[in-house]
Design a protein around this nucleic acid. Structure first.
Lengths: 227, 227
DNA sequence: CGTTATTTTGAAGACCATCAATTACGGTGG
DNA sequence: CCACCGTAATTGATGGTCTTCAAAATAACG
């Protein structure tokens, strides 16, 4: 694909698979700044520079097209492709800023909920409507993206699962209660409680708000059941 | 100036004074994403969109030029201005990414050191070579930019001062030991110790650099003087 | 089937946020 | 000039969130 600092030779629409964008700061700190799936374009942001400012790393077997810079830049001016390309650029910039704010001022659970909702949304946007996600990235990648540690991500996923928001098994993830996840994303307080008192059977412990969580009560929080 | 969401009508080179760029996330979280001083250009990043994606807020009496979009976009294509403008755009993007990584994985003291060094560098870049900085932004702004609270910023500045890295009095700041600050920025461990023992006169605890701290005390300068 | 990487889970405590109270500063008006 | 007020900044005490270190369990791989 492309590496940070290397000259810009092409952009790479992802045909199949998935990749992450990794940025290495001047001091050597490394952080995942974006995830790309089928339909996303790697190296798009760097088109009007000389050198790539991130590196792309595949997270699985991934195929992508290679569009040489001249062609790509021509597309940027063409009537046909200009708008979609710019729109994508804007969406990515917006997402990066949102991520900045998230890392800067939201709690870990909120950030993770954000990521999950985002991944689900992207998957929906590209056709796969099912609520079942297959995470291509490792816990470490998620943690890096969110400014957390892999342990925290793991623990939070477990907590999300025990309160019935999702089910996880390794990299198979299913969102059970999108509205609930969303309210976790929105409300700093609504962090899934750590086992406060060993509840007997109470239908999930989401506390205060109106938060119309549509009585998804039959949550058999045993975790791990989905295929 | 310009407000997030409003149509892009112009870009605004800062002639005098200073401003901050504020981004408001979809959920209403607000965060300072950049500081602009004389010579910087507000709204530059939004030139090829319809709407501004941040708001600019002056931090003091500030004058800036108004370059209408058509003119600005023309400049982006002209041989004369294209390169400097793009170079600025790249620098800003790089800085924003570096900030992301900083907030995501560096300690509070490192981030603050980064900001101070950055401000000093910018000031040097625009001529004012003196080591005396006048912070235009409030502690709150710094905190927001760095993903911290104002109290933490205040405490860290105090600690920086007690170990001889800087002197601060309100918004008058002087970097005494650039090398020491730099090593704080680079090394997560080298956080200025909380007052271990009040040193009498020992040349401070900054290790590797030459660390020539020339005891500049007694800076008394009233703020706000510009027209 | 052994080996390695990834993930989970636990326990301890660092770091920073939060709450609260005090001090400093700038402006206003008596 | 000084009392008054509001904003900004400092400082302290407390505890929650998250990191860190460590170990076990699970999955992936040759």
């Amino acid at each position: 694909m492309h590496r940070q600092g290397r000259p810009v030779l092409a952009m790479f629409p992802v045909r199949d698979g998935s990749a992450k964008s990794v940025f290495e700061s001047p001091l050597g700190w490394r952080q995942v700044t974006a995830f790309a799936h089928r339909g996303d374009v790697l190296g798009l942001e760097d088109l009007d520079g000389q050198a790539h400012c991130t590196s792309a790393v595949a997270m699985q077997d991934t195929h992508c097209c290679v569009v040489p810079v001249e062609t790509a830049r021509a597309h940027l001016l063409s009537a046909e492709y200009r708008e979609p390309m710019r729109s994508t650029l804007r969406r990515n910039a917006e997402r990066e800023r949102t991520l900045l704010v998230a890392i800067g001022s939201m709690k870990a659970a909120q950030r993770l909920a954000m990521l999950l909702l985002d991944l689900a949304g992207e998957q929906r946007r590209r056709g796969n409507a099912g609520a079942a996600l297959t995470l291509a990235m490792s816990r470490n990648d998620m943690a890096s993206y969110l400014g957390l540690t892999l342990e925290t991500v793991s623990r939070l996923l477990a907590r999300f699962a025990t309160v019935g928001l999702i089910t996880v098994r390794q990299r198979q993830l299913r969102i059970i209660d999108p509205a609930g996840l969303c309210s976790v994303y929105e409300d700093p307080e609504r962090v899934p409680l750590r086992p406060p008192q060993p509840v007997t059977d109470s239908p999930s412990a989401c506390a205060p708000g109106p938060a119309r969580l549509d009585t998804t009560q039959g949550i058999h929080a045993a975790g791990t059941s989905v295929a």
